[in-house]
Amino acid sequence: MTDMITTGRRLPDRLDNPVKSAALSWESLLVLVALGIFIANSFASPYFLNAWSLSDLTFNFTEKALIALAMALVIITGEIDLSVASIIALASTLMGLALQYGADTPMLVAVGVGVGILCGAFNGFLVTGLKLPSIVVTIGTMSLFRGIAYIILGDQSFKGYPASFSWFGQGYVWWVISFELVLFLVAAVIFYVLLHHTNFGRRVFAIGNNATAAQFSGVRVDRIKFVLFCLTGLMSGIAAVLLTARLGSTRPSIAQGFELEVITMVVLGGVSILGGAGSIIGVVLAALIIGLVTFGLGLLNVPGIVMSIFTGTLLIVVIALPILWRMYKERRA
């Protein structure tokens, strides 16, 4: 068990070489996969290596990736939130409703983000206040939130968002750099620092590894989980603003199935579905990979549903490979 026992008094900080362990990490594997797909794409389509094509690519995944950043933290604590796509639907619907009552752009954004936070707080209350399993709670709120959108909208849709609002989903900050991309990059940096360089992030990992022991160590487990559900709601609300602005309309079926794609990104990014491990860099890379794959296949006119085979297979293969490798090594040993 203990490979080396020091008998002296001074314990070293660490034994392994950080450079070497980084090279062997999940993230570097993802970088290789991303590079491979990037190269394959540029060979497969002459239209791929073009600034505007690459810019279009980013629209493919930024909204989902924004949610994935927060979802990663939720999953690291050992919980899950399946209601994110339904939060988008409800937030978008209520933005549309606000529009009917003459809300201006700042008001619309405030409604979208506010509804997101409230929905997240509701999930958080059910999970931490009533001590219910998050998977069941969010399956319930998934139906409930989108259900309310259906009650409000039925088979109708809201249209006619102002141009200033559409900019959030369609505008460019500089040249080919879209607002969505900038927002995502800023959010990614914030989440990176939050998870890997703050007390909060350290406690998130502790909860995921052993929630009971974390609580016994004075970590306010419920409070942190509640904040994380609110955070996921917030990011879903922001995604609702971007998506609604990009599409220019709201239907209750908006963002259908996003939750599974978001979770796929998180798991592909190396976050353990059992909690306790994961990194933001991995999630960002996974989002990029999924974006590259869907965009590349799109350039080849492969329909979206077929791409889903690809992402599904990628998810299973990427999880299975390290396990198979470990089994192979154990068998040889």
């Binding site: 703050t198 909060f200 992030g201 350290r202 406690r203 052993n210 970590v219």
Partner: peptide, 29 residues
């Protein structure tokens, strides 16, 4: 095992967990 140590985390993270407010500066590790 269940309530004492956070298995899966290294020694130093276990030790510093309740004292993070002391070792950090304005919330940053």
């Amino acid at each position: 095992g269940k309530q004492g140590v956070i298995t899966g985390e290294p020694i130093f993270k276990n030790v510093s967990l309740p004292s993070l407010n002391k070792t950090s500066r304005s919330g940053f590790l």
